[in-house]
Simulated scan of single mutants.
Amino acid sequence: MSDTPASIYAALDAIAISTHRVADPRTIPGHIRIDLDPSTWIEIDGAEAGYLILAAVEDELPQQVRTNILVVLTRAIVDTSVDLFTVFDSAFAEARQLPGWTEDQAVIRPPAYRHSGWSFQSGTFAAGDLTLYTMTRYAVYQRGNVAYLLQATGTTEDRARFGTLLDTIVYNTVFED
């Protein structure tokens, strides 16, 4: 049995006083910078599912899985002595549990500039008879005793058409205050 939490969210819960998923952009001290070309992407209301942003490719041919990007922001109250970088020990855990997971890359970067560390992971997994490509970027931002865990994830069935675009958008999604 491993002492490493099964997800980055479980790791954050373990060191935080409290956590809360933020689904209303009016309640954050800043904004999420994400480069979604309005001629390609349509935003969908994902607030009930706990998503701050949910977007899908507008003109994609009908398939079983629509190319999408989701952004999740979790606010945590922490003791200022907590080392938030420790949550990245669990950054890759969830994806690595997906059926048929094949990892392309998994990178963790230490605290710098305005964040307390970030990670980027990409790969493919099986969803029934489909092979889906997905990438996720986690970044932690701390201001005093308030921390924000930003998750940006893109998923597509059509890696040849959308893989590089999703990588770029997800990789460059940031929280600006």
Score class of each variant (00 low, 15 high):
residue 147 A to K: 12
residue 156 T to L: 08
residue 157 E to S: 00
residue 73 L to F: 10
residue 174 V to H: 06
residue 43 E to F: 07
residue 161 R to Y: 11
residue 94 E to V: 01
residue 159 R to A: 15
residue 173 T to N: 03
residue 81 S to K: 14
residue 156 T to W: 09
residue 94 E to Q: 05
residue 86 T to I: 05
residue 24 D to L: 04
residue 138 Y to F: 15
residue 161 R to H: 12
residue 36 L to Y: 05
residue 65 V to H: 03
residue 127 A to M: 08
residue 104 D to Y: 10
residue 113 Y to S: 13
residue 108 I to Y: 02
residue 137 R to M: 06
residue 44 I to G: 00
residue 131 T to L: 02
residue 65 V to L: 05
residue 171 Y to R: 15
residue 158 D to E: 04
residue 112 A to G: 00
residue 6 A to W: 10
residue 37 D to Q: 02
residue 149 L to D: 02
residue 114 R to I: 14
residue 148 Y to R: 10
residue 32 I to C: 12
residue 62 P to E: 13
residue 31 H to I: 14
residue 81 S to F: 13
residue 8 I to N: 02
residue 36 L to M: 08
residue 87 V to F: 02
residue 53 I to P: 04
residue 33 R to E: 15
residue 115 H to I: 15
residue 48 E to N: 05
residue 128 G to L: 01
residue 90 S to T: 01
residue 174 V to C: 10
residue 85 F to T: 02
residue 86 T to F: 06
residue 36 L to N: 02
residue 104 D to T: 09
residue 20 H to F: 09
residue 125 F to E: 12
residue 4 T to G: 14
residue 138 Y to E: 13
residue 164 T to F: 11
residue 69 I to Q: 03
residue 15 I to L: 03
residue 164 T to P: 14
residue 40 T to K: 02
residue 82 V to F: 06
residue 21 R to D: 01
residue 111 P to H: 07
residue 55 A to I: 01
residue 56 A to C: 11
residue 72 V to M: 07
residue 19 T to V: 00
residue 24 D to Q: 01
residue 60 E to S: 05
residue 58 E to A: 15
residue 102 T to W: 14
residue 146 V to Q: 15
residue 173 T to Q: 00
residue 139 A to W: 09
residue 134 T to H: 03
residue 11 A to W: 04
residue 6 A to V: 09
residue 72 V to P: 07
residue 159 R to Q: 15
residue 170 V to W: 01
residue 136 T to I: 06
residue 17 I to C: 07
residue 61 L to W: 08
residue 63 Q to C: 11
residue 11 A to D: 01
residue 162 F to T: 05
residue 87 V to M: 05
residue 154 G to A: 03
residue 140 V to G: 05
residue 176 E to I: 15
